[in-house]
Amino acid sequence: MIVKALPVSEQATVLSSDDLRKMFEFMLLARLLDERQWVVNRQGKAPFVISCQGHEAAQVGSAYALQAGKDWVLPYYRGLGVVLTLGMSPEDVMLGVFARATDPASGGRQMPAHYSSRPLNIISQSSPTGTQVAHAAGVGLAIHIRNSIAREIVDDAIAWVSFGEGTSSQGDVHEAMNLAGTHKLPVLFCCENNSYAISVPQHKQMGVQDVASRAAGYGFPGVVVDGTDPIACYEATKTAVERARRGDGPTLLEFKCQRLTPHSSDDNDRSYRSTEELKEMRLHDPLHRYTKYLKDEGILTDVDEQALRARIKDQVDAATKAAEAAAVPDPATVLRHVFAETND
């Protein structure tokens, strides 16, 4: 049951020009905020940065089909585009990059990009790859149990979880998909396939072309989507969301995209990607592609783009400045929150 999603030029979209422009804004914000993180890293102000560059279309397009604050979201460390689309602010993100006390994800306890937001139902993420996929199945299980007790759909929220293709090798991913398939749980498994796990290429990771092909083994659809096309990513996700809300079960979405940066600020991808490959990769930049599409369709002009870039740059500047100026965590708090405190 493997389906190839159609490219955007061949399918209709319900998205209005307004939506298309909003998605562009989120993608551009994700890119510029991501680039800024590298700058502060190279300035020696942030010890670690990990990027969403190349994944913006998959992340913004897919998250655009979710209901923020209602659906449950478990984005892996590349998910900057996801959390911005859901409503985290650039300052929220930069507070994490600088590990400040008011970092909403962890108060500076975790590395950057380990996202969490209670009001947005973004469940706190850790570093061991794939554990979050099990949690997403558990959210789906909880919704299923509630609805079973009520004998009707009293909660039609879904759990959306992302992970890389390398992480799809983890046992937790298998166990989670098996559970979700067994009870038709409302879970969207989103694999952002950039064909590398740090330096290990896909052909050394698995014996299949498409991670999505594994869905058949769990009894639900797997869809391969062009992850550099935000509209295709939105449409594929929306279909899967509607299916899950109806109680028809999970979908495995595989967004094929490129990792336009090294794995992280500690990696050097020139040691395992050739110059030609690095050059070729640039042709699949989702932001360039989408900019061109919007201009060709007359939805965005050069003037619009310039104005937008200037506005977002101001936003990123302000967020960076505010986050950098924010207080560092008080060392006296290091022992707190091991267990619930009376006011929790």
């Binding site: 558990g138 959210v139 299980l141 909880a142």
Partner: peptide
């Protein structure tokens, strides 16, 4: 639904319980 047989897989027994606990069960 409230006394549920799990698949034979211990990591998901605990991992799914974590997700369900975060959800509020």
């Amino acid at each position: 639904a409230r006394v549920m047989d799990s698949p034979l897989a211990e990591s998901i027994i605990v991992g799914a319980s974590i997700g369900a606990a975060c959800y509020g069960l």
